[in-house]
Design a protein around this nucleic acid. Sequence first.
DNA 1: ACTCTTGTTGATCAGGCGATCAATAAACTG
DNA 2: CAGTTTATTGATCGCCTGATCAACAAGAGT
Lengths: 210, 210
Amino acid sequence: MSTLSDSNRRKSPAERGAEISLAARQIALSDGLDALTVRAVAARVGVTPALVVHYQPSMSMLVAGTFGAIVAAEIDEVVAEIMGCPTTVLALGALIDTLLSPKRSAVTVIWLDAWSLGRRNPSLAAEVGRQMDAWQVFLVTLLRQGASGGEFVVADAPALAWQLLGIIDGLTAHATVRYGDAGRQRPLVRTIVEHELALPAGALTCAAES
Amino acid sequence: MSTLSDSNRRKSPAERGAEISLAARQIALSDGLDALTVRAVAARVGVTPALVVHYQPSMSMLVAGTFGAIVAAEIDEVVAEIMGCPTTVLALGALIDTLLSPKRSAVTVIWLDAWSLGRRNPSLAAEVGRQMDAWQVFLVTLLRQGASGGEFVVADAPALAWQLLGIIDGLTAHATVRYGDAGRQRPLVRTIVEHELALPAGALTCAAES
DNA sequence: ACTCTTGTTGATCAGGCGATCAATAAACTG
DNA sequence: CAGTTTATTGATCGCCTGATCAACAAGAGT
């Protein structure tokens, strides 16, 4: 990286701010949310710790913001990945497929850190709540879309949404911490969702194949 | 507590060691695993930080040990709670019932801390693995017992065991962090287990009533 | 009662953390 | 080119962490 020579230059607040946010995200993803310290960010950007503080209201805010940015980016990425599906059932299959993919373990680890750290960092806890809700809202929208389109029946979309999210998070967490590949849990999750939506068995499996 | 006057007395290694372990468990349960510092334990016991160090190989070992003790105690407690059930199906129902009870949220929080902290504390990571395996072994035993007794059919007990644990941990984690009472998820989990074990719908619900 | 073992202390080290503030220098403005 | 703004620095504070070590004293053994 030629960032080192560039970093000494005096930069606009926007540019420097973006640089700091980027470094924070990179540190969080590679070393965890609690490796996110003033000095670590400063070292990565190539500036003084004082400058990092100058650009951030507080460290706990930076942690919360970094977590939010990472998770929001993942939501966007997943939404984009699913948007192309012609039917909601296909979208649900693709959603399960991608959420239980091993490539998401980096973000899963961020979630684990956030759940733990959130107890001592109110800003982070608030952001965790916001992002969990964002996921839930997204899933509720998807479920209602399928229901109103007549693809399946859903009694309580909000409840089912966070049940499903809880299940997926639990399985990915276990896979990340100990049991390896979360991808092996796809059939189980498909079966659960098919059952809850009164879909024919295999409906979501076929969806994933296409 | 009159512990304060007692704590100045010179005690046997076993006695002092037990005192320290107890204090560590109490701190972990009330303030989280990372509030478990040499000074916090020392203050709670009423001795010098140096004495705590004298009794422990290292702080990361104390954290690992404390986590293990708390979780092992919970396993024992749950096992004792279930042991009385006349059939395995009833035991499974009782298991789901107690694991998704709000009273377990204190230990759920410990799990979240351990998953996060385990990445920087190898001793803790090893202990997390051991305790996750202990849970899985317990559940596998239960499932095989029911299968060999002809109560239900299970194809891959080890796989089903950790799927089930993942689901339950995910739902309790979500409930603890944001969505409140995990007890509302009992019907869902019962349905999933009934389906996976080819039990008639409602078999586990009736179990919980008795 | 005297000795010896060892539980216990107090002081202290080295390192990390977030945060503050005056001083510097680079870029923009007139 | 001179003057003003402000991005950036370096030094430093206060607090926390785990850990070490010589010195002390309580209790067990004789």
